[in-house]
Amino acid sequence: MTNRIIHGGGITAAARQYGGRPEEWLDLSTGINPNPVSLPDIPIAAWHRLPDQHLQERAREAARGYYRSGDISPLPVPGTQSVIQLLPRLVAGGRVAILSPTYGEYARAFTLAGLQVRQVSTIAELTSDDRLVVAVNPNNPDGRTLSVEQLRELHDGQREHDGILLVDEAFGDVEPAASMAPFAAEMPNLIIFRSFGKFFGLAGLRLGFMIAEASIIARFEDWLGPWAVSGPALSIAASLMESDTSAIRNRILQRHAALEGVLRRSKLQVAGGTRLFALVADDRAEGIYTHLCRHHILVRKFDYARNWLRFGLAPDEEADQRLAGALGSDDFRSVRPEI
């Protein structure tokens, strides 16, 4: 059995181990906008009734404009994790290649389904035997980005042997020019996953969107079954995607610049990341993680890269100062690399 993956956001467990109430902790362990947007008005019917078709249609039309997906109306799904679990059905008996290191649930889902999984570091390692290729773009956690041209070429190569290219753009909202969504209608062997909660700061809504040609979307609709996404989630998504999101983007950029400033002044090396998090490479990573936990600040560590830590965005200047204080303390200077 493949072990479950420890993700960010485990404040309750951290508080039990290091003390303090969960609400007193500063959670920098996720790649989620730390300033959730204000919720729009939700019609009472969205709570009272099963999700009517008009709610789904409005959300899909709003997503089509927001993602610029042309003739494709993106499919709302109950979080992209839900459709990751369904992907093995597309490639039963085939081989999967994942550009790695990346979000670990892809490899876990395929492995649990009994598929042959290759984790490769470069496009050059891909072969015509790879039935499905997974590329997280921009990548989590190192921020590696493939260009539109590279992904077009990769799709065309997959199409030649009836393979599929999956591009996960969970962290793509802040950099829309890098998205493949505007080209999806002309790329029949392409699937795109988009996260809703990360950019809008509403991860608890459990909502994502899938962009692909009609027959692929129809298969996932059947697999998900009726009413997969709640009426309130559809209503919120439609309202926010129809609105001007420039202020959200600008705030994220400000928070990202502030985080990098704190890390730079603390002499920590930023080795990668996206606008929603920074990846630090440091031989003292385990000690830094523990030190920050003792200050009730949670970051993300990695079992496969023991010198990496991922820092999410702090919500405001006060939180910046709290992080800077912990990284500037006398006990931080005494942290040593693991022997």
Results as ranks from 00 to 15, higher is better:
14 A>K: 05
112 L>H: 09
313 L>R: 01
66 Y>M: 00
273 G>A: 05
330 D>M: 10
78 P>V: 02
78 P>D: 10
107 A>G: 05
192 I>Y: 04
4 R>V: 14
211 I>Y: 06
258 A>N: 07
113 A>P: 06
150 Q>A: 05
192 I>C: 08
260 E>Q: 13
182 P>V: 13
168 D>N: 15
210 M>Y: 12
133 V>D: 00
110 F>Q: 09
42 I>D: 05
10 G>L: 12
168 D>G: 08
129 D>L: 11
20 G>E: 05
288 I>F: 05
223 W>D: 13
29 S>W: 04
312 G>R: 00
105 E>W: 04
228 A>S: 13
332 F>K: 00
248 I>F: 09
1 M>S: 14
179 S>A: 10
320 D>I: 00
325 G>M: 11
222 D>Y: 10
266 S>I: 06
127 T>Y: 08
287 G>Y: 03
331 D>Q: 12
195 S>Q: 02
27 D>A: 11
70 G>N: 14
331 D>E: 14
2 T>A: 06
143 G>E: 12
243 S>Y: 06
27 D>S: 08
12 T>Y: 11
175 E>W: 01
83 V>A: 14
201 G>D: 08
296 H>E: 14
32 I>W: 02
72 I>S: 07
179 S>I: 11
225 G>P: 07
132 L>K: 02
149 E>R: 15
173 D>A: 13
139 N>K: 11
288 I>S: 06
238 A>T: 04
268 L>E: 15
132 L>T: 12
274 T>V: 11
109 A>P: 09
286 E>T: 09
239 S>G: 15
158 Q>F: 01
161 H>K: 11
33 N>T: 06
266 S>Y: 01
153 E>L: 09
155 H>V: 12
120 V>H: 03
185 A>K: 08
148 V>E: 12
136 V>N: 09
221 E>V: 09
20 G>P: 07
137 N>E: 04
241 M>R: 12
155 H>L: 13
12 T>F: 13
211 I>S: 04
87 L>F: 05
73 S>Q: 10
145 T>F: 01
331 D>M: 06
138 P>H: 03
96 V>Q: 03
188 P>G: 00
109 A>C: 11
216 I>W: 00
180 M>W: 04
229 V>R: 00
199 F>D: 12
292 L>V: 06
120 V>N: 03
105 E>L: 09
285 A>L: 02
7 H>L: 13
234 L>E: 04
226 P>Q: 08
289 Y>R: 15
335 V>Q: 01
326 A>N: 10
96 V>L: 02
250 N>H: 08
208 G>S: 01
159 R>H: 04
337 P>F: 07
299 V>P: 03
256 H>N: 14
109 A>R: 04
116 Q>W: 01
75 L>A: 01
91 V>M: 05
186 E>G: 15
142 D>V: 02
3 N>A: 12
9 G>Q: 07
114 G>W: 03
195 S>F: 01
159 R>D: 15
95 R>P: 09
192 I>M: 11
222 D>N: 15
244 D>N: 07
319 A>I: 11
239 S>C: 15
306 R>Y: 03
69 S>Y: 01
88 P>C: 02
31 G>V: 06
204 G>Q: 09
329 S>C: 06
195 S>T: 09
301 K>N: 13
66 Y>C: 02
18 Y>K: 03
64 R>K: 13
146 L>W: 01
66 Y>T: 02
257 A>G: 14
307 N>G: 04
